[in-house]
Design a protein around this nucleic acid. Structure first.
Lengths: 251, 251
DNA sequence: CAGTGGTCTAGACCACCAT
DNA sequence: TGGTGGTCTAGACCACTGG
């Protein structure tokens, strides 16, 4: 840090970003070890002849990245990578498949309007005002192999007709936003493992009782009233979630 | 926004935070809808008689929260909640159990030093310099029920003796940091579903071929050399991952 | 061109910490 | 008490957008 590092004030690259990368590299290279303190903001400011606010911007980014932490009155220190927290991200399974560059397609198995009976009302906590639901089932395939099976329900708005192609859109929140008067504001998702039922095995073309991912989803409007539900089954032998944690290089 | 909203400049609560909450509430209440634009930074600045930098600080927090997005030259707009991205977080399974307030304990089934044969070297990509590994197996129980079974390997450092109690620590990165000369810098984790083996069924006290979560983990040092591995099996009927997405209230 | 957000400055005062 | 980070100001110039 105090060495011959440089900042190009006339560069198109923002100063705060140059400084951020400079310190980040020092940490990655191990020149600054976990627990060690960074130079004070004033020191960095005068060392590079830049404003303290700019220094703070750079340090904020480091804090955000979890690489350093600041303590008022004491200083700013290099953090220890937290590797025990596991974060699995599913950028929409469909997107996942696109990224893999596979040919995929969605098949609509069934779509109908159903009356809300007591069982459904209790299960989904449908409010009294809604008498009917749109019910439909889809299958996602890639390279002529069936990968997932999904059963979905949404509040039915007869005012806005829905095309079959739209039912194939894998995004339930998207469908609700486009074809009902409700605005999806939040969602709850639960991931479990299970062995598939006979019906699911038939649909997916796998052996009965094969292990599968099971994701149940509830979509809520701004008032936290449920407006959509789905239950998706993903083949256990075709899906896996990967998580990279810590200070791995992204460049 | 332009209404009778107030900011208390003499409050102990930072101005940028008051402003952040003020706009956040407007969005949550639906007074500002997705796609609509916020007042310009200059307008907010003069409306509340605060500096533009303070306004920007507040808006930065909103951007960070994913509630608005800024476009240079155009304006700042309310975002649409992204409900298709699923993020599952495991704050360390052990922590999860603590949160549930259960009595839990770790049992050490076995611990020994093993020679690295060709198979292990290939499987874990152990570098040539290491001839031995520490191998151990643990079981995590809660309320007298066995929940997960984990097999772990780390580089062996005979310089630092390890206590049995330390092998029970569920954090493999923690163990490596404390008892080897290596610094865990990053980790890769893969989550899959599977049906358990006969051995796993016996250890966990569940039926053979029951569905389970399977998490494989590799820990890397700053040079991206693997220094630890683990394979954990979690009972499918006792674990589930829950994810809340969108703009749900946290207060 | 005027208006927007993005960056940056050179100060200021404060709360907190160690001594 | 002196040094740290946390907040805030009142400007400035820039890059980008649209008409």
């Amino acid at each position: 840090m105090i060495q011959d590092a440089m900042i190009d004030k006339s560069s198109v690259i923002p100063i705060y970003y140059q400084l951020f990368k400079l310190i980040e590299d020092q940490i990655r290279r191990g020149e600054l070890k976990p627990g060690e303190s960074l130079p004070t903001e004033h020191e960095i400011s005068s060392r590079f002849e830049i404003s303290r606010m700019t220094v703070r911007r750079a340090i904020s980014e480091l804090v955000l990245a979890g690489m350093v932490y600041a303590q008022q009155g004491k200083g700013t220190f290099v953090a220890t990578p937290k590797l025990d927290n596991i974060v699995f991200e599913l950028n929409d399974f469909n997107q996942e498949i696109k990224q893999r560059g596979l040919n995929y397609k969605t098949t609509l198995l069934e779509a109908k309007i159903i009356r809300v009976d007591e069982e459904l009302r209790a299960k989904f906590q449908v409010s009294e005002e809604h008498k009917r639901l749109l019910y439909f089932r889809t299958v996602l395939s890639a390279e002529d192999e069936r990968l997932s099976y999904e059963v979905k329900y949404t509040i039915y708005s007869k005012s806005k007709p829905i095309l079959e192609s739209e039912l194939k859109d894998p995004s339930l929140p998207g469908l609700i936003a486009t074809h009902t008067e409700y605005v999806p504001m939040s969602a709850k998702k639960v991931l479990q493992v299970a062995t598939c039922t006979e019906e699911e095995a038939l649909i997916l073309g796998i052996a009965p009782s094969s292990p599968v991912f099971l994701i149940e989803q509830t979509i809520y409007d701004p008032d936290f009233k449920p407006v959509g539900w789905s239950k998706a089954v993903y083949r256990g032998d075709r899906y896996k979630l990967t998580s990279y944690d810590g200070w791995y290089k992204k460049d």
